[in-house]
Design a protein around this nucleic acid. Structure first.
Lengths: 350, 350
DNA sequence: CTGAAAGCGCTAACAG
DNA sequence: CTGTTAGCGCTTTCAG
């Protein structure tokens, strides 16, 4: 009489094949099947061949739930991000998922919708799933800390892009350096007075960008401190803020934006007022999203290495999960300035 | 002597608390704890209170891996998409994740990178995880079929946006109707000759859009069949195709694009050639992405109900997983035309 | 090198 | 209504 699995296959039922059935088919114990397939212990080559063949012909695939329960390791990592519709994330998420897969890990994705309470619940939920590691890009510079700290006490955690807890490793991009590149470029173009449009600094990168702007600009243009417009990350805010800049007095030589959305909104507002970009006002974005090349003139922006960010994050986390490291290491990547029409007032020197 | 969990807590270890420990603390059996917390069977109210209190104070959270193994249900669904960096997906994914969470389900996200072989492997992988259901937006109209069919033989499957297998339910948007709205609008604006720029119809929606264009335009402009430019979904292809249109003869009254990327590329090419939009040529996009409002003139486009798409998909799949339905039902949603400057040649009538 | 047996944490069947 | 017991599918001792 044939075994249960073969009967099911012959009946056309594509249901689950268990290790028991492979063992019966190969005439060995389940322990031997497990060892032969995982290669964790030396097994008679002939048995290995028989087991492989049986497994193959039955279409056996190990049940990861059962394995996880026994091994106390799910080979699964959680990813918590504030908002996948933020154009920054898709490329990062894609790289993360791909790299995890290469390491045999799977991804539980959670979108916190920029809500700290949801975020905390998501982290708890992920622990119910017994994740082996966590990647998190926090919603809030302060309010997200408890969730990150709790998580880090349980499994390897890597903060992505946003560092809210200094003690927990993170992989990010050097925001201050990037902002420095922007200001340096604008000064090279002859700009001497500056304004800033960006979101309120509720998350670390927003704050880093803003602080770096203030630092770099203060020596040249102390009055810039009075021309900082903090709202949200929308095109609408860029539009609104640019209107206020024009209403508040003579426009500065340059408007520095903390993201491309703000720059695009500002560009539209400036155009409506007949202010020429870059002739009257130089304009810069940040993040080098698809928006930067959609408008006319195209936006000078800062390109962050999104794929590398995701890939490095996984490499570090993965090493920590695989016990090669006690804890993931922090990594700081460099962004690169992409100069386009919105800020180009002088022909390139050289 | 105190139980193991209490000892760990007092030592500051935030490790896992098992149901055994809750049972000991409450002085009942593990079965009673399970019943009291899940509410699946009536339990003495006083015991329920004691159990709740113990669970609460120990910080007990059920291990979903163990539960899944026992219940033969992980409360987890897989989502396979071709490319998360395609601007269509983030909003859909966000809605899916949110709705799943409301139903107590978790999301395993997989990005196939537009590769059919990867896609097939991802589906197998998801089954190793014992997913309770699958949402899939297939990479290829033909080559993705085996993977979708295999999946559908195992768990409830819902095709998202792309229907590759007619027998498997799907949630999508009526592409033909949307294209009909575009053509109707352009004709209202007085356009009589048309060109089409889009991707090669490797996926169902691309084909539906193209076929609908051909159908609707043929009666008015038979020559349009010679002005169809099929490439990929990039801005670069839109640019290239528009250049070819201008090179191939006098421009048509309207260029219909299968996505906003193509329309944007075309807009840039037309501008470079001094062709006025919408004066000389009316132009339309598709999908109403962020690109549509980034350029000047802004693009007339078709807005698809992305959140609703995700939400409906989850509703149907969730019902099937919860046994309320044998199989998810198909849903066809309507898109809506968003008229902007790129196609507006006449003042609105009325 | 192989098999028997235990058990991961939970839930459901079965008695009481 | 509650406890005892078995067992989900797998891996890993422990004997042999």
């Amino acid at each position: 009489m044939r075994c249960a699995a073969a009967q099911r296959v012959s009946r056309g039922c594509a249901l689950t094949v268990t290790i028991r059935e492979v063992a019966d088919a190969a005439g060995v114990s389940t322990a031997t099947v497990s060892r032969a397939l995982s290669g964790v212990q030396t097994v008679d080559p002939e048995l290995v061949a028989r087991v492989r063949e049986s497994a193959e012909s039955l279409g056996y695939r190990a049940n990861r739930v059962a394995r996880a329960l026994r091994r106390q390791s799910t080979q699964t990592v959680g990813l918590v991000i504030p908002d996948i519709t933020n154009p920054f994330f898709p490329a990062v998420v894609q790289a993360i998922e791909r790299e995890l897969r290469h390491d045999g890990l799977s991804l539980l994705l959670c979108d916190a919708g920029n809500d700290v309470d949801v975020e905390a619940e998501l982290v708890r939920n992920l622990f119910d799933h017994q994740i082996d590691g966590l990647l998190i890009s926090a919603c809030d510079r302060i309010a997200s800390r408890p969730a990150v700290q709790l998580a880090a006490s349980r499994v390897p955690v890597l903060q992505i892009d946003q560092q809210t807890v200094a003690e927990v490793p993170y992989v990010g991009v050097d925001q201050a350096d990037a902002m420095g590149q922007i200001i340096g470029h604008l000064r090279d173009q002859g700009c001497q007075s500056f304004a800033y449009i960006g979101p309120r600094p509720e998350i670390p990168t927003a704050r880093e960008r803003f602080d770096a702007f203030a630092d770099r600009v203060k020596p040249v243009d102390p009055a810039a401190a009075n021309r900082t417009y903090l709202g949200d990350s929308s095109i609408a805010w860029g539009h609104e803020a640019a209107n206020r800049i024009l209403a508040d007095g003579p426009p500065p030589d340059a408007i520095v934006c903390a993201n491309d959305q703000a720059a695009l909104g500002a560009l539209q507002a400036l155009r409506e007022h007949g202010v020429k970009v870059p002739g009257d006002v130089a304009l810069t974005g940040f993040d080098d999203t698809v928006l930067a090349t959609a408008c006319e003139p195209q936006l000078t922006s800062v390109s962050q290495p999104l794929e590398e960010l995701g890939a490095r994050a996984v490499r570090e986390l993965s090493a920590a999960i695989g016990q090669e490291l006690r804890q993931p290491r922090s990594v700081l990547l460099e962004a690169s300035l992409v100069i386009r029409g919105s800020s180009r007032r002088l022909p390139p020197t050289g």
